[in-house]
């Protein structure tokens, strides 16, 4: 059995934290896309370190490079300059070492597979035994509160449940890092609140490091231990805000002065980056 499975227990998570605290380290990262209209500076001089167990949100308007940065971490894009390491490896090596699970904006569940079979998809590809597959499916369905839905097909679930199933799929192979690219962007506010709460609970239980791309200031402030504010043309980091909120966060925390102060600073950061100029 995979020894990393034990990271679900707080003890193991604590032990993991003592190993090496830095999970993602980017230094002078540049990424230029060559397009027909000339080069586009998607990322310019991005410096960032993410520690184990952090919940880091990336916020900024379209084109600020927040998704691109996440894709670089996930080895879906390759930087044209600078360095980036994930768990001390290149992103490609980290991908092959199954260091992270990726959650996209759309759930992207296969309509021809049941929820359980969808969650087994990465496990099948990675060659888990049938018994391990069953065990992992049961475990992650519990984590996302979808017990008993394993035999349903995606169309039988609501959008929020589908997105939870896709999070379960990303958790199935026990990666330490969860990369989430606007996972709740297509959902309505009520479902979103609910999922945010659940995501925090899941993060507390598993001790994973989470990179989370969002458009929403309240969502970023509510979820994160650190908020990375970015701005476009060229895509760059304008501010990194350490959250002073406690790790335990009921939804009501969003009405406290502390929360509003952080939200204010994020908004200021976005404005300072001329993020709203058009």
């Amino acid at each position: 059995m995979d020894p990393r499975m034990k990271t679900d227990s707080p003890v193991a998570a604590a032990r993991a934290e003592t190993a090496s605290p830095i999970v993602i380290a980017a230094r002078k990262l540049d990424l230029t896309f060559q397009t027909n209209d000339g080069p586009v500076l998607a990322l310019r001089d991005v410096n960032l370190t993410v520690n184990r167990g952090d919940f880091v949100s990336f916020i900024g308007p379209s084109g600020c490079g927040k998704t691109t940065f996440l894709r670089v971490v996930g080895a879906l894009e390759h930087p044209t300059g600078g360095e980036i390491t994930v768990n001390g490896m290149t992103p490609d090596e980290a991908r092959r070492a199954r260091a992270y699970g990726y959650v996209f904006q759309a759930a992207g569940l296969y309509p021809w597979r049941t929820i359980a079979k969808n969650i087994k998809l990465p496990l099948e590809i990675m060659g888990y035994s049938k018994d391990d597959q069953e065990r992992q499916v049961e475990r992650v369905l519990k984590l996302v509160d979808l017990e008993g839905f394993g035999n349903k097909f995606p169309w039988q679930l609501s959008g929020g449940m589908q997105q939870r199933a896709s999070i379960a799929r990303a958790l199935a192979f026990d990666a330490d890092i969860l990369l989430m690219d606007e996972p709740f962007g297509a959902l309505d506010e009520i479902v979103r609140d609910h999922l945010n709460e659940q995501l925090l609970a899941l993060w507390a239980r598993t001790g994973k490091t989470i990179g989370f791309v969002t458009h929403s200031i309240p969502e970023a402030v509510y979820l994160s231990t650190r908020i990375v504010v970015m701005s476009p043309r060229p895509g760059r980091i304008t501010d990194v805000i350490e959250s002073t909120l406690p790790r335990e966060r009921p939804l009501e925390i969003r009405d406290t002065p502390e929360f509003l102060a952080i939200a204010h600073r994020v908004r200021e950061g976005l404005r300072a980056g001329h993020a709203y100029d058009e």
């Binding site: 879906l76 199954r98 990726y102 590809i125």
Partner: peptide, 26 residues
């Protein structure tokens, strides 16, 4: 997005074909 997802799992071309492309083409 579907292809990216399989890429993050390190799926081979054959796996991508049998698990994604072929069923999608039905």
């Amino acid at each position: 997005m579907q292809l990216d997802l399989l890429h993050t799992y390190g799926a081979s071309r054959a796996q991508t074909f049998w698990k994604l492309r072929w069923p999608s083409s039905m």
